[in-house]
């Protein structure tokens, strides 16, 4: 074991040649948030505003929560309310603070065999897909988006895990890869609006359905508990929370557009 430690020490020395930053914190965020490009706007502003370098670990909600539980990040920004509440009640997070919301959309082939575009609500749309057995690609990765999709199937009266793989394809990867898969198979898929708008490999796909309030998607910020993990940078996490919920950040979020479309609606309540 001592040899292993010597080796570790050696590797550390070798890698310390890389410059270390002073005031930085780590935040696990979901792919959908990162893919939207909003982080590219916010991160420099955070640096300017409060002098904190935020390092993003981009993962699914499931893994983000796991990183938070293990104390490997200082805060998380995710969108899966029930899981977040468990995270806080189990003592892993100090509290949950809502920041903003965006919405999910249903994307599918231009010829729309299930006539999803004609649906008046999301339940109708999903029922049509199920009825026509049109190919549907699911994230299948336990992410917030995936959990949302499962809850929507449930709302429509189905158990998604009982679907035949002949048409219901659970991919098990991030939003981008899932969209790539859907594009390749010319299939239906549920995506957050931001990922869809930023996606560059649309192929034959187009946006078919959106706007049902059930599709709204709340993002919340959760600092990791310093009681459980004394090493986390809770002071920076609080600083960041105050900044994100402050007027400057909220107006930046409201003003962020892709192709003229607003992606996120800020809804942080002042304390």
């Amino acid at each position: 074991m001592t040899l292993a430690y010597k080796l570790l020490f050696f590797i550390m020395i070798l890698s310390f040649s890389w410059p270390a930053q002073a005031d930085n914190m780590r935040m696990a965020v979901t792919t959908s948030f990162h893919n939207s490009g909003l982080s590219d706007i916010l991160l420099p502003e955070i640096q300017k505003g409060i002098g904190v370098e935020v390092q993003l670990i981009v993962v699914g909600t499931g893994q983000a929560l796991k990183l938070g539980r293990a104390g490997d990040v200082d805060a998380i920004l995710v969108h899966s309310k029930s899981a977040e509440e468990v995270f806080v009640s189990d003592g892993y997070g100090t509290h949950r603070r809502e920041i903003m919301y965006n919405d999910f959309v249903i994307v599918g082939p231009t010829n729309d065999p299930a006539r999803v575009a004609a649906a008046t609500n999301v339940v109708e749309a999903l029922k049509a897909i199920e009825e026509t057995r049109s190919v549907f690609v699911s994230r299948g990765d336990d992410s917030g988006t995936h959990r949302k999709e499962l809850s929507l199937w449930k709302l429509s009266g189905f158990e998604a895990n009982k679907f035949s793989p002949a048409w219901y394809r659970a991919g098990g990867s991030g939003m981008g890869s899932t969209l790539n898969t859907a594009s390749g198979m010319n299939a239906y898929v549920m995506s957050d609006r931001a990922s869809w708008l930023k996606f560059k490999n649309k192929g034959e796909l187009r946006l078919l359905f959106s706007g049902d309030p059930v599709l709204f998607n709340q993002y919340a910020y959760l600092p990791v508990s310093p009681k459980l993990h004394p090493h986390v940078k809770n002071d920076l996490a609080i600083k960041l929370e105050n900044w994100l919920t402050g007027p400057h950040a909220q107006s930046l979020i409201a003003g962020y557009k892709i192709s003229g479309e607003t992606l996120f609606m800020p809804n942080a309540k002042p304390r």
């Binding site: 570790l8 590797i11 550390m12 070798l14 890698s15 890389w18 780590r26 390092q55 670990i57 539980r69 293990a70 104390g71 490997d72 993990h229 090493h231």
Partner: peptide
């Protein structure tokens, strides 16, 4: 990982961990 046996080194998410 911070909750793993070598967590005290704080090496996760650093180039050292990648090495």
């Amino acid at each position: 990982s911070r909750s793993g046996p070598l967590g005290v080194f704080g090496l996760l998410f650093t180039p050292t961990a990648m090495i």
